[in-house]
Design a protein around this nucleic acid. Structure first.
Lengths: 249, 249
DNA sequence: CAAAATAACGCATATATTTGCATGGATTCA
DNA sequence: TGAATCCATGCAAATATATGCGTTATTTTG
């Protein structure tokens, strides 16, 4: 049997069953395990599959279409995410909200960090699922079509049964006196539940959202323990928040 | 024997068998291995075949199974999805499994259909969330990194509290006598729960998976109410399944 | 037609690739 | 943590490849 032929067979098996065991294939093709190992290594280098301990898995499952390229103020959001990632410690149990800023945070969480991440966001869950050392738990529920997050009583109930070390949340609007507000009532309910379930709540928000408000209130500004914007902590825009007991990064 | 004549023979052999060994051809045509080697080199330069170590491989064979961008056997899976979508009725409460075939079904569900769709798959949930008239409910749980689906006790418990009109599931392996089997124990548990929670279970499987089996058993073939493959219902390959009480589409 | 030019072929030799095995280190799982 | 499994690496044997060269067709050309 030709090497090429063998590799094609391996690819077919991976495509068909999504995953294979090195030993299974070696036995099926009647060649040594080493050979299959080398084949899989090559195919992995060619990005035709992904080698994992003991076998290989299909790329098709891993390719995420969730990575949107045109995110508003991505640079600012990346700066916020960079600050936020510095708060993460091995072994922490955290919650990640939906939204592009949290998505950015999810994206840059280091591979080697051991975390348990809960999230209501489908894209965030997909992004995190690519990281080897992160235990991802999605909170189920009715899916909000706009935000692609789980909402509703079920999700809220679930959240109420957990205790997060840190929760990283976004908000639609934030104001020093009126607190965090939203356009959407369902989302407010979810965020209330998250804040209640968190030892520490971290708000991620670009400065553009500062001093804005809307109809439904999530919480007072005091309910937030840490606020992260893309600005330097001593920026004038943040002065109004300094009076409160909030750590500003 | 003319050079041209020889090369034609090589090409037809490659087309017929998808692959050849240099040594085989040399022996068959009774010329030196060097000559065949040179011939193959030329034909490779003309892109009439692909030279590999030890032999040559048909171009068709290559492009057929080594696509890295597309989903394996997408055409077949689309055919299956098309049959499955015909079973959907307004107002139904259904379950959609993970996997590329179910993903394909999710993709082609019509916009105007009113459905309540439960799913454990993050990509499927995201796909469905784009459809206006579909109420998407994700079942939460620990996320399996390979399959990007929720697994574990929590997900299973959730599923047990629902009653689906129809569940559309895939399987790793299926055999008329051994039933549905999987590579992964966790996934078997989820599927068992789904089948138990469904009034009718519909298996989506490309014919390539027929008559294959693996370590862990999901259910007997009788637990399936409807089986959909890309084949015509009267295909010979499906004969073994006709003895059972299964509707074949 | 015949000589020259060109191409094809096979052989020998040096180089490269593939493969299985052995060893020691890493990873996983109970 | 310890046993089992998996992985990386080096090595040697087998096999495949490239190349030069001499011999033998085949074609060209005067």
């Amino acid at each position: 049997m030709l090497k090429e032929e063998r590799q094609q067979t391996i690819l077919s098996e991976v495509d068909l069953h999504n995953r294979i065991l090195i030993t299974d294939i070696a036995e099926a093709l009647d060649v040594s395990i080493d050979t299959i190992r080398r084949d899989v290594k090559e195919l992995d280098a060619e990005k035709k599959l992904r080698k994992v301990h003991g076998g290989a898995i299909s790329m098709g499952f891993m390719t995420n279409s969730a990575r949107n390229t045109n995110i508003y103020k991505l640079a600012d959001k990346a700066a916020i995410a960079a600050k936020a990632v510095g708060m993460l410690r091995d072994g922490a149990v955290i919650f990640l909200d939906g939204g592009t800023t949290c998505m950015e945070l999810a994206r840059i969480i280091p591979e080697n960090l051991n975390l348990t991440c809960f999230t209501i966001s489908l894209p965030v869950a997909m992004e995190l699922s690519h990281k080897a050392n992160i235990n991802v738990i999605s909170i189920g529920g009715q899916i909000s079509k706009e935000a692609q997050i789980a909402i509703g009583a079920n999700a809220i109930h679930h959240i109420s049964e957990i205790r997060f070390d840190y929760s990283f949340i976004g908000t639609g609007y934030v104001d020093a006196t009126y607190g965090l507000t939203e356009f959407d009532w369902d989302i407010v309910q979810i965020k209330k539940a998250v804040i209640k379930a968190s030892k520490k709540t971290v708000l991620l928000s670009i400065s553009e959202k500062l001093n804005s408000q809307h109809r439904y209130k999530t919480c007072d500004i005091n309910s937030i323990n840490t606020m992260i914007t893309e600005l330097k902590p001593d920026d004038n825009l943040l002065k109004a928040f300094k009076n409160h007991d909030i750590k500003i990064l």
